[in-house]
Design a protein around this nucleic acid. Structure first.
Length: 747
DNA sequence: GTTAGAAACAATCCT
DNA sequence: TGTTTCTAAC
């Protein structure tokens, strides 16, 4: 019996059809990851394809990691040379090698949303645009959509002719792009745009990657935008072995430029494409599937699909409407407690999904009080915290002196008495002389206008120069350590003595251990490499298998995940579908919202609970909402739980009102400072202080590492928040590493 | 130049 | 409600 016998006939067809274009329409829970991993395996073991020629591309690091893991366990030999990666990391890898051909340095920096906004503010000021009337964010939105569509500043300018508003946008776009280039920086969209530009302009590079990626598989194809579409098309054009997997019903990223036509018109672009539908669902009960099917049936213009399962009917969907959002949170917390106590359900089996991040707050408060372990995905990224960004700006300045933004961020952190006027003069001088900001600082003595302030600048420049000369032999972690000591960043926080300062120090410690872990996990660690990893991690990436906490996240983040016990909270018109969707005159927006609902429902394996509240506070104002129209699209016979007696409701109201009083009076002050930091600081990618996981290997065991291969565990030292494991690898010698990062597997 | 406190303002979702 | 920006006083 072979491993392929476990697949159903449709899945087998998808696995065995290896040559030419293939479109796999995979309904929710139909085992698409299984198909992709088995397909990679089949290519290598049955078709004799060199793993080096196979590429699998996803949207999130988590999905990529999962696929990597599953391929590793399936493929006997050589799986590590399969290119499994996200779109963005793939682009960065290509650009780090070749972007000099487009006139950038290969050590470019990547700007996050924060950086973009600061840059945009500066540009608006320069162009004398009043940001009270025209918001930075709206310009950034316009530019981002243009980039998604591969529209260059020049193209944009041509199209804008004659339209005042668009001409202004064009001017801003041109300036913005010029500023990025001057700073040797790329924003997120640029990663794709520049890679496509490179591949379409440079035949040599294109040929190299076409030869390398002879078999390409793309996950979540319905979420690709135009730039991603062209990237894939360019790469696949020579061998045409392109296998895309997706589900038009799960297309929920239009706002990010995703073009649903990429999947709907696949057969027109590749007329010889083989189309395979996966309709058997292995995840949910029939009741849950029926609910999902009846909701999505209200959309027009989708590919016909009928999900079915041979699991039984299962439990009815528990639907509850409450007076207030507090009661909703009470109910869900109590229900989770009950399920954990009575039916052997774990906290980690439960997920609460909502439309907007702001909704997490009530649940967090409730869970802190009731002592339920939880983890919030999304919201503020670990790397977006002020203290982390400050330290990273030092690293960026040392790594790439052309990044003006980073330099300006830290020139006066800690306080060096260099203020706005001095900076303005340095800026003017830099502009005049055609220098970068940092270069101007180095030559501060030459700037006549700043006078005595030059004395304050010199130590800073000396410090950066010294650090630059030390990068090579210090390595990332020690460099960071030295920055912290020399600048007195942590000691300043210690002096503050507040809970918040303490939380910041803990975050800095966390950053340090990430730097250490990075150096240990990479074969050739570099400063640029570390900064790059930091720029590309998303929050969902941090979810660890086997940790026991309730997960809270938005419906968008939940795509691709599954949980036995799912709560869809805040199912009200105005929340979900959201206010913006309801007032929109484009009916397609409601369809997208409905697809989001479909995604939510299909995350549930055995039990789905839908809740809503008649009133809730939104930005300090009480809003009154009706039950979501999506709930009404679910046939009544699938719903249970609505029949609650008057008395029972009254009891519940009283008890929740009481706990609400508790939450506001006693708990909140503590909660709002230290605890919120503690609970969120674990929202980072690999290790975390709050959930140390047990190891399933011990000293003397044989283990396997993704890169280093097999080895024997020599020693395990228990550290504060992780285990430090020493392993003697057969191929690469002895290495020390953090357990949570190394992901060692017992063999 | 720096700071704290007041006022203004905000409308998803994310790599 | 929570965050960012403005203002005034040190």
């Amino acid at each position: 019996m072979s491993m392929y016998d476990n697949l159903n006939s449709m899945q087998q067809e998808a696995v065995f059809h290896t040559e030419g274009p293939v479109l796999i329409l995979a309904g929710a829970g139909s085992g698409k990851t299984r198909v992709l991993t088995h397909r990679a395996c089949y290519l290598i073991e049955e078709k004799g394809v060199n793993p080096w020629h196979i590429m699998a591309i996803t949207f999130t690091n988590k999905a990529a990691g999962e696929m990597r893991e599953r391929i590793d366990s399936l493929v006997g030999f050589g799986s590590e040379s399969i290119w499994v990666s996200t779109f963005h990391s793939t682009c960065v890898r290509i650009l780090r090698r070749y972007i000099d051909r487009l006139g950038y340095d290969t050590n470019f920096t990547i700007y996050d949303a924060d950086d973009q906004k600061i840059l945009m503010k500066d540009i608006c000021k320069r162009l004398q645009i009043d940001t009270k009337i025209y918001k930075e964010k709206s310009f950034l939105g316009v530019i981002s959509s243009a980039k998604d569509e591969l529209i260059s500043p020049e193209d944009f300018t041509l199209r804008a002719a004659g339209d005042f508003a668009k001409e202004r946008q064009a001017a801003v776009y041109r300036e913005y792009q010029a500023a990025l280039r001057k700073n040797n920086a790329l924003d997120f969209d640029d990663l794709l745009v520049k890679t496509v530009e490179l591949l379409s302009n440079d035949a040599e590079v294109l040929d190299y990657y076409q030869e390398r990626f002879r078999y390409i598989m793309v996950d979540e194809y319905q979420d690709t935008n135009t730039a991603q579409f062209y990237l894939i098309k360019l790469l696949a054009d020579k061998y045409r072995n392109l296998c895309v997997v997706g589900d038009d019903d799960q297309s929920i990223y239009k706002f990010r430029g995703a073009n649903i036509k990429n999947i709907l018109n696949f057969e027109e672009i590749y007329p010889d494409a083989k189309v395979i539908k996966l309709e058997q669902n292995y995840r949910s009960t029939q009741n849950i599937l029926n609910a999902a099917n009846s909701v999505i049936a209200n959309n027009v213009g989708r590919k016909a699909k009928a999900l079915w399962t041979d699991h039984g009917e299962g439990e009815k969907i528990d639907f509850q409407q409450f007076e207030t959002a507090y009661e909703e949170a009470d109910y869900i917390a109590a229900d989770i407690r009950k399920k954990v106590k009575e039916s052997g359900c774990h906290f980690g089996d439960c997920a609460i999904l909502y439309r907007t991040n702001a909704q997490s707050r009530l649940f967090e408060e409730k869970f802190v009080v009731s002592d339920i372990p939880y983890k919030i995905v999304g919201g503020i990224n670990f790397y977006a915290r002020k203290e982390i960004k400050d330290l990273l700006a030092y690293l960026k300045t040392i790594d790439n002196g052309r990044d003006d933004l980073a330099v300006r961020r830290i020139i006066n952190v800690p306080k060096r008495g260099i203020g706005a006027t001095t900076l303005g003069r340095v800026q003017a001088y830099a502009q005049e002389q055609g220098l970068s900001f940092y270069q101007a600082l180095r030559g501060a003595d030459e700037i006549s206008t700043i006078g005595k302030a030059g004395v304050k600048i010199r130590p800073f420049v000396n410090f950066i120069q010294t650090m630059r000369s030390k990068v090579e032999y210090l390595g990332v972690a020690k460099l960071l350590q030295e920055i912290i000591e020399e600048t007195g960043y942590v000691s300043e926080l210690e002096a503050e003595g507040t809970d918040e300062a303490q939380a910041r120090i803990e975050n800095i410690d966390e950053l340090l251990s990430k730097a250490v872990a990075y150096e240990e996990s990479e074969e050739t660690p570099t400063l640029s490499g570390f900064l790059e990893m930091v720029a590309l991690v998303a929050d969902v990436d941090s979810l660890q298998e086997g940790s026991d906490y309730v997960v809270l996240m938005t419906l968008h983040s939940a795509k691709g995940l599954e949980f036995p016990n799912v709560y869809l909270a805040g199912m009200e018109d105005g929340m979900f579908p959201g206010y913006m969707t309801i007032i929109s005159d484009d009916p397609l927006e409601m369809e997208e919202e409905r697809r989001l609902c479909y995604v939510g429902i299909t995350r549930a394996m055995t039990q789905l609970t839908i809740t809503c509240a008649k009133q809730r506070m939104i930005r300090g104002e009480t809003q009154y909402n009706k039950v979501s129209r999506f709930v009404k699209e679910i046939p009544g016979n699938l719903l249970g739980g609505m029949v609650r007696t008057q008395k029972k409701q009254k009891d519940e109201q009283e008890s929740s009102a009481q706990s609400f009083r508790q939450a506001t009076s006693k708990v909140k002050p503590i909660f709002s400072t230290r605890n919120i930091y503690q609970s969120r600081q674990s929202n980072s990618f690999a290790s975390s202080s709050t959930d140390k996981i047990a190891l399933d290997y011990s000293s003397g065991d044989r283990v396997k590492h993704m890169k280093f291969g097999e080895g024997t565990v020599l020693q395990i030292v228990e550290g504060g928040r992780d285990y430090e494991v020493t392993v003697a690898f057969d191929r690469v010698g002895t290495k020390k590493m953090f357990a949570s990062f190394a992901k060692l597997k017992k063999v």
